[in-house]
Write a protein that binds this DNA or RNA. Structure first.
Lengths: 281, 281
DNA sequence: GGTCTTGATCGATTTTCCCGATCAATAGCC
DNA sequence: GGCTATTGATCGGGAAAATCGATCAAGACC
């Protein structure tokens, strides 16, 4: 199995014509034929129905397509993720909780770079579950997340918490916040639970999203009320359109630094954890 | 990039000896050398440090390893998942919530097979998040899960609910259940929340797991109390060691059938949904 | 200093890949 | 019906790549 075969397969699945695929990939039609045949032999199933009146995927081909895409994607990722940018000595691959990336990423990376000038950083905002999986397989070296997923091979350090504040385009008083104009947030299971406990009547809001950024764009577009990161709240209130819902309780989401257990004692990782923790004191 | 190269890389990463890898793969050492060189050229980085006193992965090589495993795994999966077993006309790929698989899978599959005798089934117990992702990429055709993850391309049907019942080796009375002997369960975010609301004093239990099966094995090994599937509860109580905690509220976890939106109207999927729903009436 | 083991390298052979040309089958058109 | 354009399959030859076996140089070990 080669990447060429996958590319040919995927292109052919799109064009449904051996000739057009040959043209697009700058190869001859006979080569397309041969590559498809080779791939079919490799997977052990016929992938295309060929007829004079066009080509189409077989059921097997349809099932193979997502896997072909996954393989292609994984190969791209592999290439991107292993190289150290020139000039750097090391490469650190960091995962950052989606919600935190937008607000904190810039500051953090500036500090990381100051602390480790010789190190290049590969950063990917993602969700807790995915980051835990990537730490386990070794695709990530270090991650900052909301929801630690207990696992014998993962180590979590609490690094503080982040505050969510309720803002509104309509009222500064919690009692006047209408649940049908409220954007409910499920940033993490723990956050959602706190949310329901403190303001159960708003839990039935018709709109529910999982990112602070999405809450902001919804509120900006349609007006209403909802929880956003404290830092974002200040900016929006300063902008004039929003006001703080002052008697609504602030919600605090704990933040964790996560690493694979085998790196737990590395000074590098301790230092990273410290830097992140400083932001929440 | 070819599978052979990945296999060679992974074997060499294990043996750290060109000769031993050559032996194990039944090729010559010069071929190992050439394959490694080919892979290194393909990824654009040196993957091994060769020295007289042994071979070892470079930092790039270490980072490449998880990707190599992922590629290898994906290729295996692709081969397994596309073939229709002989004699069958179609192949349906089903995902089933981990917790439900152990108890319901047998019955369901028996019914599915009776309803679609011409169809082969590929079944994989998994978690909601992963199943949603697999439905989106087309790796799964149909899934039964606890936690629907809203997405424009996914369609969810409620098919009923499953009941969790508290059992104990120690007492039939809720008031006497000790939180330090309780196994807290987080089968789904929704379940966890209900759990906390109905029995908040047990929420601080020192042991918390995410599968009904794990709860059972923990309770069997160490004794104590916890929620398990009603069906399992009956079996365990009949076994004699456990008793029902009668005044503990039953917890109901909603169950959903999920499909990709483009298959929503297929009669096949409607029928599957009906069959699953029948089990919860 | 001799011997063993390491991975790299070279040349020969086999295998694979690719192209260009051709073929058979069909669709569309007159 | 007959003509033409288009479909993918097939074949032969040449180029490229993979593989093997043998050899080599460099360090480890005794």
């Amino acid at each position: 199995m080669q990447i060429d075969l996958l590319d040919t397969f995927l292109d052919l699945a799109e064009t449904r014509s051996f000739h057009r695929t040959a043209e697009r990939l700058r190869i001859t039609q006979s080569t397309v034929s041969a590559r498809v045949a080779a791939l079919e032999q490799a997977v052990g199933s016929r992938l295309f129905d060929r007829s004079r009146a066009g080509t189409d995927l077989t059921p097997e081909g349809k099932r193979f397509e997502p896997h072909a895409r996954a393989l292609r994607h994984e190969w791209n990722e592999a290439q991107r993720r292993i190289k150290i940018p020139q000039g750097a000595q090391h490469l650190l691959r960091l995962g950052i909780q989606n919600d935190l990336a937008a607000v904190y990423l810039g500051d953090w990376v500036a500090e990381f770079r100051a602390a480790f000038p010789e190190t290049a950083f590969y950063i990917e905002p993602d969700y807790s579950n995915q980051m835990c999986a990537d730490l386990l397989t070794g695709i990530l070296d270090f991650a900052v997340m909301f929801s630690p997923k207990p696992h014998p091979d993962l180590h979590f350090d609490s690094v503080g918490e982040v505050t969510y504040r309720m803002i509104s385009t309509e009222t500064p008083r919690l009692a006047e916040v209408r649940s049908d104009r409220f954007v409910f947030a499920h940033f993490s299971p723990a956050f959602e639970e706190m949310h329901r406990q403190t303001t159960p009547d708003l839990a039935g809001a018709p709109v529910s999203v999982g990112q602070s950024g999405s809450v902001v764009s919804l509120l900006t577009a349609m007006g209403g009320s909802g929880y956003v990161l404290a830092k974002t709240a200040s900016d929006l209130i300063a902008g004039g359109r929003f006001m703080a819902v002052k008697d609504a309780p602030d919600l605090r989401q704990p933040v964790f630094a996560a690493i694979h257990i085998r790196h737990r004692t590395l000074p590098l990782h301790r230092r990273l954890t410290q830097l992140v923790a400083r932001h929440f004191r």
